[in-house]
Design a protein around this nucleic acid. Structure first.
Lengths: 233, 233
DNA sequence: GTGAGCTTGTGAGCGTGTGAACAAGCGGCT
DNA sequence: AGCCGCTTGTTCACACGCTCACAAGCTCAC
């Protein structure tokens, strides 16, 4: 029984994991204001979720609250940072230095939040050798050499869709095990690699759907006022 | 019974809505290759989801498949585009022309997919009057006038977090009813406004969590081999 | 020391989403 | 015309996530 009660086994639901960063941000804000403790209700309001959900989510981390009082902000911050793996920096490589890659490389928030951009790579000879935000753009062929220097765990793909899969494969071969994909394509990666995707067009299309519904139902209501028979169903 | 079987009332689950754009993209690809029909299995593979899920999702749109054959690509494309509200363009306004806003304004994908950027706004006098991708940056105070010209339904917020809520309020006041928020903050909007958010730092922190889990469990296994008595919760 | 007032942590019920399995139905072949 | 193979559309069982509600437990006042 070498592992005893180590909470490593406690499995945190995926839905909870996606909310932890929100809580973290709220906690940082509260800590900045010098508040020593915070209630689940207040934290819920700041994070835009239900208070019961907050309590249940936090309970997965452990019993870090005090009944009648709330959560100690500093302590909870520490525990959450530890759980999220934010106690040290994670170096990031960005592939594809086009419009988006350029903006990402310039985004100061990455470094501030513990994700320093360690390298930029591309395949286009016209951008290789240039610098963005003080970081030189190198050829993607050099990825293994770059990764060999310092540990790079996270890769961001900002290439065109056509190149994304190959870039992902090469990143993984170079030791990257977490990928954030901005290219509008489905990547296939081994099970032990984490993959998240952000697709701007998809987000807009989802918004479009609900927008369409609203305006369509307006139109229907208008038509229904003229025509006698309203939609059944 | 003027409306007959009008499916307006059929409510499509949220989870399904988020997948429709993926199917759409796959269908466009297939249509480009000239394939007349596609099976749910193939569509599932291309979109990275389960085949049964594809069939169920598509069934919400109506019975557009043919048993033994599959789905008519062109017809399904048409129906899906209609459902997603993509039969006409949606004009978009981007607020905050910093790193990210700049990149978004330059992103050709928006226009290609039916979301032309109709206007750019900012509050910083240094960027107002400049042009990005041929579009002039105007002051956010002019938003009502800009929106009065052509119907602008969708707003993209790429401002710093501190300005995001006010920008959202002003967009809504100007008639925008769908917002895509890139600022790392929780926005509160009326119920009739659709809101989606993309937070780069949050995405990285989620990846960090799983990365941490992987490396931590490696380390635990290592430590457990050396130490006899582990910490008891 | 005791009671009042909060706030956490959690158990139970409910709704939604998922995946497997299968009947229904279409097209083509003989 | 009838049969066979294939694919859809749907049903069912299950897992997951969400919310409510409340007992447990802490602090503070008196």
């Amino acid at each position: 029984m070498a592992n005893g009660g180590k909470r490593q086994a406690r499995k945190i639901p995926e839905a909870t994991v996606t909310r932890l960063p929100l809580y973290l941000r709220s906690l940082l804000e509260v800590a900045n204001d010098g508040m020593p403790t915070i209630s689940s209700e207040r934290l819920a309001e700041m994070s835009g979720v239900n208070a019961a959900k907050v309590r249940k989510d936090l309970s997965y981390l452990g019993s870090y609250g005090t009944r009648g009082v709330g959560y100690d902000v500093e302590y909870l911050l520490f525990q959450m940072s530890r759980e999220l793996g934010l106690t040290h920096d994670w170096h990031v490589v960005i592939a594809g230095i086009g419009n988006l890659g350029h903006a990402l490389a310039n985004y100061a928030g990455f470094h501030e939040r513990g994700f320093p951009v360690a390298a930029l790579v591309d395949a286009d000879p016209r951008v290789i050798g240039t610098e963005v935000n003080g970081i030189p753009v190198r050829h993607i062929d050099e990825l293994p050499a770059i990764a060999a220097g310092r540990q790079i765990a996270i890769g961001i793909i900002a290439t065109p869709a056509s190149a994304a899969q190959e870039v992902a494969d090469r990143m993984i071969a170079a030791g990257v095990s977490s990928i954030l994909n901005f290219a509008p394509t489905i990547l296939s990666v081994p099970a032990e690699v984490s993959l998240r995707k952000v697709d701007l067009a998809v987000e807009l299309q989802i918004l479009s759907f609900y927008q369409q519904r609203r305006t369509a139902s307006d139109r229907v209501a208008q038509v229904a006022a003229e025509v006698a028979a309203p939609p059944a169903t």
